[in-house]
Design a protein around this nucleic acid. Structure first.
Lengths: 320, 320
DNA sequence: CTGAAAGCGCTAACAA
DNA sequence: TTGTTAGCGCTTTCAG
């Protein structure tokens, strides 16, 4: 085994508790002693064993981050920011992926619970009931889900979605589709409510759908047959899949049908036609979630979204 | 604090060690006792404290995964697969991001070292010398870097790159550019060596460059001025950035210049023109790295790559 | 300011 | 098969 606090103590001719204090309460130890201990620790390559520390303190200095699907381009920027925020405060971050499975969500929370000081759960698919149980067990921050009494970071996707629909209405579209997301998604529900009554716009809802490219491809025929000239998709990946699917059916975007995504992902930006999208501040969300968790502040933070008009939207065909 | 092994022991009328054995060596305990203990543990919601366990066993059942940049689409599939492989064997995975900074690489390894049983380091940017120091401290698997005596998973990017260049030669290109990657990248060096002497092809090397979209945009002018009709870029992101940059200069892809990426990322597949690329089995690499680490097998695994011809390559202009 | 001693939750010999 | 005991590396009273 590696070098322990005891080795340092011996080498220094002080007691272990002095070494301990040097690291956990430096001000309680004589400056001279401290520098000596520090020097020896450095020389010996001593690194505190966090597991041992956590045993006495009850803290682990670890955090857990659980996302629905690592391969959805929505998440990486969030994870990156969360990780940076955690590191900045000397926390380590466990990352896990539920494959969109609510059962795995709960399993992972339990698996993490003894090993972390708190958990950031992003875009949960579990029911509110199930979540209420989970949040009892350990400090929690929820991202993209509102739950009474739980610290939350949500992005104002409702407003974003509404703005997107108004953008379509403004372009002259009259009948549009909402291609919704997976059943357990709070975001999907919010979007649905938000776009139900946009003035001058008739909205058909198609879904629920998997939040993936395949999900988008899968509804292309339905969308093409729905008699709509515009679409708001659950996320960029679904939007792109839809455009791919429509293309195969000979339906052009934005020539025949305008399509808007939600994310602001790099994939959407680089896609052609450049995807008009509701940009989400995912990095902010990741950073804030971790900060809130560490501060154990209870708060419901709402982050703004904004519509990015690119090239996948245009006036409906036949309009001047 | 939560329910401990002692609570379960009391409630069961057995000794703590019996409870301990029930979990860590079930076969060593009477079937009847075992079921009783299990039942009580379940009822009380007991979950073993891994930190405490690790203190005696010396194992943590945690692994660390360090990547250069989480927001590079190359990594998420690798991370996802690594995470799944870890979970499948009841390991938890710390994930961290170095922002392409070799110093952070070393810092993270040290930070992780007391808390994990091993580390997967992907696409390291540190020097071989620095890495040799690091690998002394803890079990290691390197991805995309070969180092004597260290377990390694590399993708055969040399062959892939060569095939890509041969593809260009086959299309009739005679003078091409290699837009190389960051200085610390082993992969970039391999590519460079591999394409130095493709028959019938004159290759100019442009770089090193940041492995990002910006990196690609930044060399567009240089590429346009290099008198080449084809380009192999360090990765998909650089390839895309390059195409964007060329587009701004009025240079069409593949009309004026053919461009090939390396990755096989989703972003490249969805980009238009659909990116011709050297596909890398990133998910396999992530899974294998974790499996090798857990098995502590020493091996140098080479994964095959393959060229995916899509729409960003064509014969040089003016060829029949 | 520093040392002594107890104990965090668990495992691992060793006995019984 | 089960209980006893010691101890993993560290923090934290409590004395000195």
């Amino acid at each position: 085994m590696a070098v322990t606090i005891r080795d340092v103590a011996h080498a220094c001719g002080v007691h272990v508790s002095t070494v301990s204090r040097t690291f956990s309460a430096p001000h309680m130890v004589n400056a001279e002693t401290r520098t000596r201990v520090l020097a020896v620790a450095e020389r010996l390559g001593y690194r505190p064993n966090r597991a041992a520390r956590s045993l006495t303190t009850g803290r682990t200095d670890n955090l857990g981050l659980i996302v629905a699907d690592l391969s959805n381009p929505f998440f990486p920027p969030l994870i990156k920011a969360a990780q940076a925020a955690a590191r900045a405060q000397d926390y380590h971050l466990f990352v896990a992926d539920t494959d969109e499975d609510p059962a795995k969500e709960q399993e992972l929370v339990h698996a993490f619970s003894k090993q972390v000081d708190g958990i950031v759960l992003c875009s949960p698919r579990s029911s509110n009931r199930a979540l209420e149980q989970l949040v009892e067990t350990i400090p929690f921050v929820l991202v993209n889900r509102r739950l009474r009494g739980v610290t939350t970071v949500v992005m104002d996707v409702a407003r974003g979605a509404r703005t997107a629909m108004e953008h379509l209405a403004g372009l002259g579209h009259r009948r549009v589709a909402l291609v919704s997301g997976p059943a357990g998604s709070w975001t999907s529900g919010e979007i649905r409510k938000a776009v139900a009554d946009v003035p001058g716009l008739e909205t058909v809802v198609i879904g629920p759908n998997a939040p993936t490219e395949e999900g988008g491809v899968g509804v292309a025929a339905q969308v093409a047959a729905a008699g709509v000239t515009g679409v708001l998709a659950y996320n960029d990946l679904v939007a792109i899949g839809l455009i791919e699917g429509l293309d195969e059916l000979g339906v052009g975007v934005p020539g025949d049908i305008s399509v808007i995504g939600i994310d602001g992902s790099i994939t959407g930006r680089l896609y052609r036609p450049k995807l008009t999208t509701v940009a989400m501040p995912t990095a902010d969300a990741g950073r804030m979630a971790v900060d809130l968790l560490i501060k154990s502040m209870s708060a419901a933070t709402v982050l703004e979204t904004h519509l990015v008009v690119r090239e996948s939207t245009a006036p409906p065909k036949g309009l001047p």
